[in-house]
Structure formats: C-alpha cells, structure tokens
C-alpha cells in the first residue's frame, strides 16, 4: 500500500478539521478527493505531507511512518500546491530547475528532466519568461511542472485547476492522466465533480473532515436511490396531473415549471416508457425530451442532504 492513513484527527481549537479520517491509496491509481470547500481535503493533504501536526492517528507512506524528517519518502513525492508556489524573481526555466534540483543533484540528469517537464506542460515558448508575464493558466502549468519535473512516483495535486480557464483545465487534466499512464500514483483534490469523474479511477467524497463515501464513479452512483433526471418540454401541460406522474412506478418526484416537467426517477426499469405512455394517454404533446444520469452531486446530496457547492 502506498498511503495508509488511520484514524487521523486534526483540531483547530474547537473546530475538528479531520475527524477519524481514514484513507488507503494503492499504487498506480488516480484517487480523487472530492468535497466542498472546508471539508478537510487540504488539511488531510497537509497532514500526509507532514506540513501540519495532527492530534491523533497514524500516517504511513511506503509502509513507513511519515514525519517531517522522512527525507527518503519525500524524495518520491511530487506536490502541486493549491496556491502557485514559484519564485517571481526566477524565469520559468530557473523555477523548474530550482525545484527539480531539490530532488536531483546531478546537473545533466536535471537538465534533461527540466526539458521534459517544460515540454510536458507546453511552456517551451516561455522558458525565459518571468512568471509575472504569464497568464493564470500558464502559471498553473508552471506550478505543475515544478511539482512533477523530478518524475515522482506519487504526485499530490491540491486543487490545481482553481481559477483556470476551460482550455487550460482540459490540458491540465490530460496531463495528469498522462502522468498516471507513465506510472505515477496520483491524489487529486478538488471540489469540481466533473474533474474527478473525468480522470479518477477511485473517488473519496469528504465532508466535515470524514470520508463519507468511497469507490469508483459507478460504485458511488450505485450507492444512492435516485437514478436519472428526465426533462420534458410539454406544449399543453394543462392536462397534466402531477400526482398521477408521481404515482407511476419508480418515480421519486415530479415538478412542473411553466412548460418544463422535471421527473426524478429511482433505479427501476422502463420509467421513461411509463411516463411517455401516461402523457400519450392524456394527449399531451411533447416538444423536447432529454435524460441526465445521476451525478456525484446527487450522491453527495443524498448522503449529506446538501449540495456539493452549498
């Protein structure tokens, strides 16, 4: 096991930031740590990296206790912090070389690794640029290059796409998947569920300092009762009786706003057919129809009673 965290408790005065937090990370996976702001994701990462002292529990990396002086373990870790941590006074190349040099002392090896990292994040045209002249997306890419240049076996990325435009975000996510294909184990924290759905092989959902659900994307969605959301545009909704819709099998709720009917269904079969049959029987004409599968937000909503972005 690459990371094994048991019963981790971290308090800030009366506030419990981590409440008996447990986490196991296997080699080669991309683990997404998903949770709303303040759920304890960054605190957990900081404790794992020995940046924070904790009150209770154990943290093991590579079957060894993780401490501030565990330099051999740190050598295998690459960290991309939530805030961009670079030197404004150094150029793009010098920044990557600096951070790579903290891990790799051989000059020739380092030169090769820095060149690879620059190519990987696509900053080849900006090597001699001062970070002050880079856009937000390019700065994020530089931040990632500084964290991964030494080719670590474990990469921890703490919300690396915050305040990044969609195009740069996609580039970053593709880059992370590429790193994983190259053999790196990745822990990815975010509060964007689309990102973890897109890249993570396993997802841990956090709330109030605890992991409240863990599994693959599909496993998590199987955990909840709610199924798809069926949206129908009705041209003559005056003939509709909502109580008759909710009385249909596997329907959890139905809501009509103007001409838009939103039906939340359970995990039964042929739900859509039953709804369409009912509408046909009532001579209600359908303008448009589409269905949405359940999201991680639904998972979070059902477990905690609140939305991920509340």
């Amino acid at each position: 096991m690459l990371i094994n965290v048991k019963n981790l408790v971290k308090r800030y005065g009366d506030l419990i930031a981590l409440d008996h937090f447990n986490l196991e990370v296997q080699e080669g996976e991309i683990l997404g740590l998903l949770g709303p702001n303040g759920s304890g994701k960054t605190t957990a990462i900081n404790c794992i990296l020995s940046l924070l002292k904790y009150d209770k529990g154990t943290i093991e990396l590579y079957d060894q206790p993780m401490t501030p002086d565990a330099y051999d373990i740190k050598r295998n870790i690459g960290v991309v912090m939530q805030n961009v941590a670079i030197f404004d006074e150094l150029t793009v190349y010098e920044n990557i070389d600096y951070f790579c040099g903290l891990y790799i002392s051989d000059k020739h090896t380092r030169k090769k690794l820095v060149a690879e990292a620059i190519a990987f994040v696509g900053l080849g045209d900006f090597k001699k640029f001062s970070p002050k002249k880079l856009s937000g997306g390019l700065l994020r890419r530089l931040n990632i290059a500084c964290g991964i240049a030494h080719k670590p076996k474990l990469i921890i990325l703490d919300e690396p796409t915050v305040a990044v435009d969609p195009q740069s975000r996609n580039n970053i996510l593709e880059g992370i998947m590429e790193l994983n294909r190259q053999g790196a184990t990745i822990i990815y924290t975010t509060h964007y569920m689309e990102e973890v759905e897109q890249i993570c092989s396993r997802i841990a959902i956090m709330d109030k300092g605890k992991i409240i659900a863990m599994g693959t994307n599909e496993e998590l969605k199987q955990m909840i009762k709610s199924g798809e959301h069926i949206n129908l545009e009705l041209l003559n909704p005056e003939h509709l009786e909502l109580s008759e819709i909710t009385a249909l099998p596997h329907i959890i709720s139905a809501e009509l706003t103007d001409h838009q009917l939103v039906v939340k269904s359970g995990r039964g079969k042929n739900t859509l057919i039953a709804i369409l049959d009912y509408l046909k029987g009532r001579n209600i004409t359908i303008g448009k129809i589409y269905s949405e599968p359940p999201t991680l937000n639904d998972v979070f909503l059902e477990i905690t009673g609140k939305a991920l972005r509340d």
Binding site: N46, L49, S50, L51, P68, D69, Y71, D72, K74, R75, I77, V79, M81, N83, V84, A85, I86, F87, D88, E89, F99, L102, Y103, C146
Partner: peptide, 18 residues
C-alpha cells in the same frame, strides 16, 4: 521575504532538502 513566503516555504518543506 521571498523564501519566507508561506507557499514557497511549504513547497520547500515538502522537498527532501534537509
């Protein structure tokens, strides 16, 4: 001021530099 910047300091602390 640069080296004591919180983010950079934390970044240095997670490295294997003693």
């Amino acid at each position: 001021l640069v080296f004591n910047n919180t983010d950079l300091k934390r970044r240095n602390l997670v490295s294997p530099l003693r």
